[in-house]
Amino acid sequence: MNSPSDHFELFGLPRRFAVDLPALEKRYRDLQREVHPDRFSTAPVSEQRQSMEMATRVNEAYRTLKTPLLRVRYMLELEGGDVLAETNTAMPREFLMQQMGWREVLEEAAEARNAQRLDALDAQVGAELDATFADVEVALDARDGATSASLVRKLMFLDKLREEIGAAQERLEN
């Protein structure tokens, strides 16, 4: 009896970018009900160990499938694509300019403690993320590895920027 080989199989979901989130969540809970260590507290050590490994795997798979950026990276990996290929880190000039512009706004807004401006930037970057996800979905479903990989790199830039905006917002609050 073999274990499910990938996250999609583990959750009984088709390997597509568009994931049925309620179904994912339900499956996650059903699986944890079976394998979580709390179900094995009276069991022998060998079963407790198995339970911890499987529950860890289920958590990891859930996090990956639930988080869009992790999901696309994982899908690329399954296709044998390499997002971080060192020879392939060049980004379009236009995109880099836009990034630099946004980073300037972030620095200025953080400096000036301008919460409104931070919120506006957050919304702008969020919209760009959404648009890029839509593009990557098309590329992934068309099995266009090269385009997908380049879009995923763009997503990673945007995600990092959004994280930094979040950190700046948090600093402002405290």
Binding site: M1, G12, D30, L31, Q50
Partner: peptide, 10 residues
């Protein structure tokens, strides 16, 4: 046994 219970969920 663990695999079996995972499969039973699926």
């Amino acid at each position: 046994r663990m695999d079996r219970s995972v499969k039973s969920v699926l």
